[in-house]
């Protein structure tokens, strides 16, 4: 086990974590501002990936595809908010879970109807192909770009929330919804904007990850569940918590899958070690989540006290 391999896995973990952050940020904002649990967030990720692959396939340009995927996810988010989600704010969590579960069924089948049952493939843009030398390891340029992209979007989101008028309203909405409505802020429009913003981030993540995975129906749900783990660890409603949680989950999951089988191989035979290691590694982040909830039932950075 060389240092180069460890560094490569660590970078993979950070890259995975940053993509999870893009998913989790929208989820946690929607919960923080509107108090809504949105299972269909993974479907928006899927829409971003599908539209990016379709546009990139038609035009031959990845960046046009990226814009297409992001726009489609944001538009789908706005439409879904106005048609369905809006009716759920006053309902209990059970109704929200069910209605958004129904949305997953609808959106997944709609994608299957439009794009057919087979996965789409999205190529890494030519400018970002190949590897780059980082001293002791040759690392994929595209994955490195994803890390840069993730950091840039995170900074942009921070600036949006901390420095702009919209950000002030979002923060006000998180601390007291009724009050900002009473102060004359158009709360319905704010809700639609926040939901569409979250959808755009999810769509962006889907489009970016689509180039290193296959784009298929059902791709959003595993990521959605990881994003839930992230925001529960980080504290629901906290964007900072989502960042910390996403990096923790990304790095621990990746390193666990890399290190645990090797650890067990040091005293068990290879086949057994691989089995036990893989089984434990896949449970690791859920164990982390359980531990966090036992010691900090509201997450590491709770937005609501």
């Amino acid at each position: 086990m060389s240092l180069a391999l460890v560094l490569e896995q660590l970078l993979n973990g950070v890259q995975f974590g940053l993509m999870l952050f893009l998913m989790s940020a929208g989820l946690t904002l929607v919960f923080g501002v509107m108090g809504l649990i949105n299972l269909a967030h993974g479907s928006l990720y899927m829409i971003g990936a599908f539209l990016c692959a379709a546009v990139a396939g038609a035009t031959g340009n990845f960046w046009l595809g990226l814009v297409g995927g992001l726009t489609a996810a944001a538009a789908a988010g706005a439409v879904i908010e106005m048609a369905v989600i809006r009716r759920l704010y006053a309902r209990d969590h059970l109704d929200q879970v069910l209605a958004t579960f129904a949305l997953i069924l609808i959106l997944s089948e709609a994608m299957r109807l439009i794009f057919g049952p087979f996965p789409l493939y999205l190529n890494v843009p030519s400018a970002l192909r190949g590897t780059v030398n980082l001293g002791i390891v040759d690392y994929s340029l595209y994955r490195l770009a994803l890390i840069g992209f993730g950091v840039a979007v995170a900074l942009g989101l921070w600036a949006l929330i901390a420095k702009t008028r919209l950000g002030i309203r979002i923060r006000a909405g998180e601390s007291d919804r009724e009050m900002i409505a009473a102060l004359g802020v158009n709360i319905r429009a704010l809700y639609t904007i926040v939901f569409a913003l979250g959808a755009a981030l999810a769509g962006l993540a889907g489009a970016l990850v689509g180039a290193i995975q296959s784009v298929q129906v059902g791709m959003g749900e595993p990521v959605l569940i990881l994003a839930f783990v992230v925001i529960v660890i980080g504290g629901i409603g906290s964007v900072k918590g989502a960042m910390v949680g996403a990096l923790l989950v990304g790095v621990i999951d990746t390193m666990g899958r890399f290190l645990l089988p090797r650890f067990f191989a040091s005293f068990l035979d290879t086949a057994q070690a691989t089995g036990i290691g893989a089984a434990l590694a896949s449970m690791l982040i859920y164990l982390l989540m359980a531990l966090v909830l036992i010691f900090r039932p509201k997450g590491l950075f709770s937005a609501h006290g």
Partner: peptide
């Protein structure tokens, strides 16, 4: 120990733990 949305998610997480365990236990 938790309630509301946290309860929903932690029960989901425990089930996922079981799911991935059975998936990777050969």
């Amino acid at each position: 120990r938790t309630s509301g949305i946290f309860f929903i998610m932690i029960t989901l997480a425990f089930a996922q733990m079981g799911f991935f365990f059975t998936l990777s236990w050969p």
